[in-house]
Amino acid sequence: MLAHVIGKKSKPVKNVVERGAVKKFAESIGDLHPIFTCEETGKQSMYNNNIAPPTFPRVFDYGTIEELELPAKGLIHGEETFHYERPLIVGEEINCYAEVKDYYERKGKSGEMGFLLLKRYGEDLEGNLIFTEEQVVIITEAVRKEMMV
């Protein structure tokens, strides 16, 4: 059903690791550690700056993958994987984009389910990879039927 979008990518979008957004995010996961929020602690750290929590990339805009239209409701988040070359530094600019890595269908307890593997990338402005995020999204039979209408 979604096999035709495998390999498609979004156009990169420039994002900033915003200080205020990092603080708000750290607070929302109960992790207001000074390495994320206190400028003085950041300056004295080995990063010479504050850093962002590892799951912060949820905040970024990755652009739109053409022809990938997913319903806003009914998707199940199955797995999530982050890989980092180094932590994200507060204030830095990064280019973000997303790619459909794979799609397949399997018969399960509740009918035919779709598995969508999305991979997101964050690179510095010179094109060096900083992080990737891989997400397995499960599309249940009920949602698949709605999508096919």
């Binding site: 996961i29 080995m46 850093i51 929590p53 590892p54 799951t55 797995e79 982050f82 980092y84």
Partner: peptide, 21 residues
Amino acid sequence: GNLAKLFTPYYEEGFIQDYKI
């Protein structure tokens, strides 16, 4: 996001390279 905070006190020693859930 919450689970990762077990490692927050140790960012002077290293960083979370891979985190799979």
